[in-house]
Design a protein around this nucleic acid. Structure first.
Lengths: 216, 216
DNA sequence: TCATAAAATCACCCAATGGGGTATTGTACA
DNA sequence: TGTACAATACCCCATTGGGTGATTTTATGA
């Protein structure tokens, strides 16, 4: 079997070097590149062609979560394993949303690192028990709301989209009328149509919906 | 060390009996009660005094997620371990929000059950790798939005809370006035105060906020 | 004990919003 | 050519939200 190719984003050179030594000293793993920041992440990934990226989330400069998002978008075949000293729910949550495949604490021993790397490589999702626990309590604290996935083709006409934009921006009908060179009543008619199509019944609902569904 | 006391909610009697046999046949575990549905859950829990509840999420009648929520609210010291054949992200997510401590698939072997029970008992959060993976992909699909945690002490008076309740339930001011034995204008005054305290400016906003922050 | 601060009650004014119609014009499509 | 729909416009009316002001009761603290 081929070695698992691992690249590291980590600002601490000592840690990078240690990981390099551990990885290259363990059969089945190969260290293929390390970077102290994400400034040249695209090139770094192309060069090192990793199967798994070990990502330090607390890097100076480009934020580890953003970096994770970028890598996951541009190189979907690459798995990202987050490593951090933090274990607060929000950070974990954001990293997961960014597309990370697993989460490991810096306090975990090297053998856990190796296990976790193998696990993400094989399609798993390694979680430190502490991490999983934190994440759960984060959920139970109702910090999150569920948005049912749905089609967002509401068949709004072009004109309706224009007006929706202005509504969401908070202009009142009179102002929208002036801006759009139509009458107040026409604005109201369009708004009614928009509300019907989006199944909402008030300004604030439509703003919510438009934001959530990215209709803007 | 004392045995871990385990109760089971599961509609399939065969499964219940099997778990009873396994638990009582394994040192360190004790089966303390089983129920085919959640109709008498409160009494069932009081009788069996479990440390861990094994919850089948696909039970007829009372829904396993609701049941989990109830148990976690009324008996916060009891850990709930969800067992299911499903592994879709949404269901897992809902169960976690309901307060479950871990998630196990029915296809997992008995020894995994025992491990998982011990793990939740010790404060951990067991996850089948498949489950964790599903959950992650659910997150990355942006089905969720984050709500920044904030203090929810808005210093609403008792009366204001009552009226807020009615507002969120969708009654119009006239109806609320009748229901509360006060005049329409007084309802309006209270509503204005509530809006000021909650920093909202419309019915739908206040409904959102109240729901998200559990002000109900 | 008295002053002050709130909570709770009610009233009036006014602007903005939302829902129900109806109507005319133009355009696209079958 | 007729039907459907988008865009325009107007009317009526109920509800909502904000402002101002007032009275009464209740609590709280100096």
């Amino acid at each position: 079997m081929l070695d698992i190719r691992v690249a590291i984003f980590e600002d601490n050179k000592l840690v990078r070097d240690a990981m390099q030594a551990i990885l290259n000293g363990t059969p089945g793993y190969r260290f293929t590149g390390g970077a102290a920041d994400g400034n040249r992440w695209e090139m770094d990934i192309r060069r090192s062609e990793p199967d798994v990226v070990l990502m330090d989330i607390e890097m100076p400069g480009l934020n580890g979560i953003e970096l994770t998002k970028n890598i996951c978008n541009s190189f979907p075949e690459v798995k990202v394993l987050i490593q951090t000293v933090f274990n607060d729910g929000e950070r974990i949550f954001l990293a997961l949303c960014a597309g990370a495949s697993g989460y490991i604490l810096k306090s975990d021993p090297p053998h856990r690192y190796l296990e976790a790397i193998k696990e993400v490589y094989n399609g798993g999702a390694p979680f430190n028990t502490t991490v999983a626990k934190k994440m759960l309590s984060f959920f139970s604290n109702k910090n999150v709301i569920l948005v049912s996935p749905q089609s967002n083709d509401y068949r709004l006409s072009e004109r309706e989209k224009e007006l929706l934009q202005l509504i969401v921006e908070g202009y009142d009908y009179k102002t929208i009328a002036t801006k759009s060179f139509i009458s107040y009543e026409t604005v109201r008619t369009h708004v009614k149509h928009i509300y019907k199509k989006l199944h909402v019944a008030s300004r604030s609902e439509v703003v919510m919906k438009a934001r959530q569904q990215g209709l803007l």
